[in-house]
Nucleic acid binder design. Structure first.
Lengths: 224, 224
DNA sequence: CTTCAACAACAAGAATACGCATAGTAATTG
DNA sequence: CAATTACTATGCGTATTCTTGTTGTTGAAG
């Protein structure tokens, strides 16, 4: 899951970044509206978190342009408390949710999760494929009766696979969503992490859930 | 535990703030109804203390709006002695408790504790995880037979951990609830205080109650 | 049926980031 | 102003992440 944060206050930006990264999202931050617009249109984000008070291009203008250009990525708006009517305009302009500053970071995380939930997955937010279960709230993963301990990256990769179960995910898609932007293309980290995951999830099972699609990428099996 | 105080008389407000902070709650104060409403909806408070006589938006209106928006945080209302019917209306509107001015601060603290007791933990208000026991009323902590002396911050942290036992608490979540809002993100105070707590609580035990979730945060173990 | 090239899997080690202890500094409190 | 408490800074060990090189697989051409 890749998130763009458009926020010019460095303190707030880095606070958000860290929180999101702790939830194993891939996060990009940019500090003005122009850059925000450019990035939003060139990279395939899953969510945009947008401050309304921005240099160069105001947040609302950015949002309108995005929607005008047919970009449908969910957008969460951050506003100061005083700018209440801006909020309404924000929702009119096509925002999916808003938060007033100051906000609890957990609130932001919860909204984030709920937006992703809306986009796909079960209502409870719990992801399940066969007897493999992932709970994004507690970050717990288990297969059948057995708890599975994953590292941050392993978890992020698995969540992405499970959210897109049944879809073949190419290596570029996976790097985009699970790793950072400035990423060395000629590496096989993904293969390595797929292997780690298989060791923890599929080892000893007759049916492997994570399957290789030669020449393309990987899929999480949906049908048994 | 984070508390919002909505009170326009500066003297009363600061009096309450100091008393609550002495009990190691994190306290935010705001002086009018509009701000109160915004904050209450944007920050994840554990309790709201609400004066009914407020500028901009009256307290009752604020409360109604909160409940209408599905906010279930416990609310204690403050009324003048004469405004009996206001009190009744307040409880109707979804307040959990009330106090008539002037009130003894100890009274407020007692109600606060009792509301927290109702909200979580055992009926008696005592929090218990394994053989670790925390009594919020007396602020006494013990493990097994042994009394444990904690400083204010240590206590606040432990109480937060215990109230959320079994949930992974990220560093941002912990700062939100135990430290102040405008918090330097690049610090390791939390780590240090976790370490203090472990020294007092877990040292010499084979099973540590406070567990690290690498890349995420900390959990208080529930299962043994 | 070989042979070869492209691709994937794996092992092992290097680099990095993270959590933790420790010690020192600043701020409170009595 | 002494003592306690709150916070900062630093360095170290280790889990995690990533790189590299080798081996194994697959499928198509000879």
């Amino acid at each position: 899951m890749r998130i763009l944060v458009v926020e010019d206050e460095p303190k707030v930006a880095s606070f958000i970044r860290r929180a999101l990264e702790e939830e194993s999202y891939a996060v990009d931050v940019c500090a003005d509206g122009q850059k925000g617009l450019d990035w939003a249109q060139s990279v395939d984000y899953d969510l945009i978190i947008l401050d309304l008070m921005l240099p160069v291009i105001p947040g609302l203008e950015l949002l309108k342009q995005l929607r005008r250009n047919g970009v449908k990525i969910p957008v969460v708006i951050l506003t100061a408390r005083s700018e209440v009517d801006q909020r309404v305009k924000g929702l009119d302009a096509g925002a999916d949710d808003y938060l007033t500053k100051p906000f609890a970071i957990e609130e932001l995380l919860a909204r984030t999760r709920s937006l992703f939930r809306r986009a796909g997955g079960t209502p409870s937010g719990i992801l399940q494929v066969d007897d493999l279960v992932l709970n994004p709230v507690t970050r717990e993963v288990s297969r059948g009766e057995q708890r599975i301990e994953l590292t941050t990256k392993e978890y992020a990769l698995l969540e992405y696979l499970m959210r897109n179960a049944g879809r073949v995910l190419t290596r570029p898609m996976i790097t985009e969503h699970v790793w950072d932007l400035d990423f060395d293309t000629f590496t096989n980290v993904i293969d390595v992490y797929i292997s780690y995951l298989r060791n923890k999830i599929d080892r000893g099972r007759e049916q492997s859930l994570i399957q290789t699609v030669r020449g393309s990428g990987y899929v999480m099996r949906t049908d048994v």
